[in-house]
Simulated assay, not measured.
Amino acid sequence: MDVLFNLAKKFVTPSISINAQKESRELIQLSIEIDRLVNKMTIVGYQDNR
């Protein structure tokens, strides 16, 4: 897999693009992991007062 940077002042916010011939489970999982990493998703919950 190649990692390419397209840097320009015109970009206001960073974005990530996945380019492939077809969608696969691995690519979907990759997109989920990237989203979690970038957005630092945390789920807070309680069970039995903990």
Rank of each mutant, 00 (worst) to 15 (best):
N6D: 15
I32K: 15
S24Y: 06
I18D: 08
I32F: 08
L4K: 12
P14T: 02
R50L: 03
I32L: 10
Q29R: 14
N39M: 08
N6I: 14
S15D: 11
N49C: 00
N49M: 04
L37P: 02
I32C: 06
R25F: 07
L27K: 08
Y46V: 05
A20E: 04
R36M: 07
N19K: 15
S15H: 13
V38F: 08
V3T: 05
I43V: 13
I18F: 12
Q21T: 10
V44F: 02
N49A: 05
V3H: 02
E33I: 08
G45K: 00
K9E: 14
V3K: 06
D35M: 03
I32M: 10
N6F: 11
S24T: 15
L4V: 12
R25N: 12
I16E: 06
N49E: 00
I43G: 01
L27Q: 02
L37N: 08
Q29T: 09
V38T: 10
Y46N: 05
L7F: 06
A8D: 15
D35F: 07
E23A: 06
L7E: 07
Y46T: 06
A20P: 04
L7P: 00
R50K: 11
K40S: 15
E33S: 12
L30W: 01
E26H: 05
K9A: 14
R50V: 01
Y46S: 09
K22H: 00
N49H: 01
K40Q: 14
T13K: 14
L27D: 05
D35E: 08
I18S: 10
V12E: 15
S17D: 10
Y46I: 00
Q29K: 14
I28C: 06
V44T: 00
L37F: 11
R25G: 06
K9D: 14
A20Q: 00
Q21Y: 00
D35L: 06
T13V: 13
E33H: 08
T42M: 09
S24G: 07
K22I: 02
F11T: 06
L4F: 12
R36G: 02
V38I: 15
K10R: 14
I34E: 02
R25A: 13
E23L: 13
V12H: 12
I32A: 10
A8P: 00
L7M: 09
S31F: 07
P14S: 05
S31P: 01
I16M: 10
F11L: 04
I18Q: 13
G45E: 02
G45Q: 01
E23Q: 07
L30H: 01
P14H: 04
S15F: 14
L4T: 15
V44E: 01
T42F: 05
L27M: 09
L7H: 04
I18R: 10
F5M: 12
L7N: 05
K10E: 15
G45P: 01
M41C: 06
A20C: 05
Q21A: 08
I16W: 11
Q47N: 13
F11C: 01
L4A: 07
N19D: 08
V38E: 01
Q29W: 05
I28H: 11
M1E: 05
M41D: 13
R36A: 01
D48R: 00
Q21R: 07
Q21G: 03
S31C: 09
D48H: 03
P14R: 05
R50F: 03
F5R: 12
Q47E: 12
I43A: 02
